[in-house]
């Protein structure tokens, strides 16, 4: 359904959802925005910056969460998650797409992560399209876009004084049930805005044959060149909406088993108990980060594991730019594979 929402009516609508749901909206924190629970005083951020600094994956896979609590005499009990039904409003299409990508990893027959699943099932995601494309993002390059609808229950398009609301599921419809329908003219106008935004996104690099080039140049000097200035911190991966690695740790003093975000960029990530490290330097770790997104995701689910949100580009402390790395990768030699 296509509905029309007056911008003035938005705060009231958000507040009304609080009767049934925990509502998360991007709000200002320091110099950036962050998904936080809506309160009466909350001020919504809908313009710049487009994306929250921490991607909404954190709402489904928290930085740290307790899995198990140990009890006396060798017993244990599962930690209670206590997730209420909730609405996440203002999620950008790149970040919503990332959640869909993460589903392929966390929700698999026989290997479903119950904590992820519970949060996913209890969450309604309402997207806000990017009519003014963000700087350094490259969603269209990786096959998605500023009005990508994947994994959203509704998508909003900014039309000036109003939003066009496209509901994409029953849950989404229920959230906007009191709104009046949008006329065909308004809908056409919104589609035009969406198309213009899509066309404004530059092509950051070519994706054709990229996978083959990265695979075939596994031992290339290229990896040394692009990783030279890498500090080995976790900024690019922790702020990445599709990075999902975690580490399970027993916090014995707290009598808890927890899982924390982890990253392939850390030395300890691949360090083995023997002391051997199969990825001994930043060269191998950088190769892993890029290859996971542009080779292994494709092998596993036939999708690029990057949604082009641009966070790694914006916040890398040494200015490493994944787009430039991949442009350089495109100049590497390769042979066309004739896989059956």
């Amino acid at each position: 359904m296509n509905l029309i929402l007056e911008k003035q009516a938005l705060p009231g609508l958000l507040q009304s959802w609080r009767e049934q749901y925990d509502v998360y909206v991007p709000q200002k924190m320091e110099r950036f925005s962050h998904f936080m629970p809506l309160t009466e005083e909350s001020v919504l951020v809908t313009g710049e910056p487009h994306n929250t600094r921490i991607p909404p994956k954190a709402l489904f896979l928290p930085m740290t969460e307790t899995l198990v609590k140990f009890t006396r005499f060798g017993g244990y009990e599962d930690a209670q998650q206590n997730v209420q039904p909730r609405v996440v409003f203002g999620i950008r299409p790149c970040d919503a797409q990332a959640i869909q990508l993460l589903d392929t990893s966390f929700i698999q027959e026989g290997y479903t992560d119950p904590l992820w699943l519970e949060r996913r099932e209890k969450t309604i995601t309402i997207g806000l399209g990017c009519h003014q494309p963000c700087h350094n993002g490259f969603c269209t390059t990786v096959g998605y876009g500023p009005f990508n609808k994947s994994d959203l229950d509704a998508l909003l398009t900014d039309l000036g004084d109003t939003y066009l609301v496209e509901t994409l599921s029953e849950a989404g419809e229920a959230c906007f049930q009191d709104l009046s329908p949008a006329s065909d003219d308004i809908y056409e106008h919104a589609l035009e805005i969406q198309q213009i935004a899509h066309d404004q996104m530059p092509v950051a690099f070519e994706t054709e044959n990229l996978k083959e080039k990265l695979e075939q140049n596994f031992n290339s000097k290229f990896w040394e060149e692009v990783s030279q200035s890498c500090l080995g911190c976790g900024v690019c991966t922790f702020l990445c909406p599709t990075c999902f690695c975690f580490d399970i740790v027993d916090e014995t003093q707290r009598k808890q088993r927890v899982r924390n975000w982890d990253t392939c960029m850390f030395r300890t990530y691949s360090l083995e108990a023997s002391g051997h490290n199969p990825r001994p330097s930043r060269v191998e770790r950088t190769r892993q980060r890029l290859s996971h997104k542009f080779v292994y995701w494709l092998d596993q689910v036939n999708q690029i594991g990057c949604t082009g949100c641009g966070r790694c580009v914006r916040y890398c402390p040494v200015g490493i730019d994944i787009r430039a790395m991949l442009r350089q990768a495109q100049t590497l030699p390769f042979e066309v594979s004739h896989a059956v």
Binding site: C233, T263, F266
Partner: peptide
């Protein structure tokens, strides 16, 4: 408490050169 434990501060610091940091 805004920290995400990415250790960019550690890696950016010339004086943080321990092979194994105390947090690891």
């Amino acid at each position: 408490e805004r920290c995400i434990r990415c250790y960019a501060c550690r890696e950016a610091c010339p004086m943080c050169y321990c092979t194994e940091c105390f947090v690891d």
